[in-house]
Design a binder for these strands. Structure first.
Lengths: 110, 110
DNA sequence: GATTAACTGAGAATGCATTATCATTATCCA
DNA sequence: TGGATAATGATAATGCATTCTCAGTTAATC
């Protein structure tokens, strides 16, 4: 009933996609569905610096994101630099981290 | 004329600080000054996921940020995990990256 | 000191994502 | 089929950072 592509989508993009399958879907309905899905843990809010909020299917595995400066699309990145706790100053307790890569995606590099 | 602490500050915080030194400073003036300073390269806009924009003095050295979940303050972190280009999928060109650590700062850990 | 130009602060206006409102429509069950 | 209840869509309202507006003030020039 709610199609979420592999990449994090903006609420507006989700509405567009939903509207393509079932014309007449309102933004309010999209937000209502997102509210549920986030609450149930099926969807996760993804906020990248300087970008409007996006939503993606909740994955079990830890991952990060790649933002293409050319086309604006956001991709998931499986790898992780690993232990970043040692970067923090003495006495700081690191509980989690976010990594965002910027550059050009395969489609925009060529 | 514009005092910027070691940590990235919100526009509102900058106004508060400026107002303390020279009462009557308006937000408009703060934004006008920021516009200049950013344009001249002396100040950099720092956007952390899910947080309101902050501004910090432009440093030459590459660094990242630590956001304290307890007190909300943001600190600079000198270290860097290094080469993150290998995390991206085949064919993706990584040009830069952002790393944000979350946890508790020294003051909030104790 | 008078005139002009540049700057300032207060508050209105804007843009945007999100939420609330509410009349309408679909669903369910007797 | 009818009536109660829940879901929906359009749109207005909200909250927020930021920009615009404009009258008043300061600074600069002659």
């Amino acid at each position: 009933m709610l199609e979420v592509s592999g990449a994090p989508m903006r609420a507006q993009e989700i509405q567009d996609a939903a509207d393509r399958g079932a014309p007449g879907i309102g933004l309010a309905t999209v937000y209502r569905a997102l509210k549920w899905l986030i609450h149930s843990g099926d969807v996760v809010l993804v906020e990248l610096p300087g970008d409007t909020p996006r939503y993606e299917l909740a994955h079990q595995h830890h991952h990060h994101h790649f933002s293409c400066r050319s086309c604006g699309r956001v991709f998931e990145v499986d790898g992780c630099p690993g232990d970043l706790a040692k970067l923090a100053p003495q006495g700081f307790a690191v509980e989690s981290h976010e990594v965002v890569l910027y550059g050009r995606c395969a489609g925009c590099v060529s």
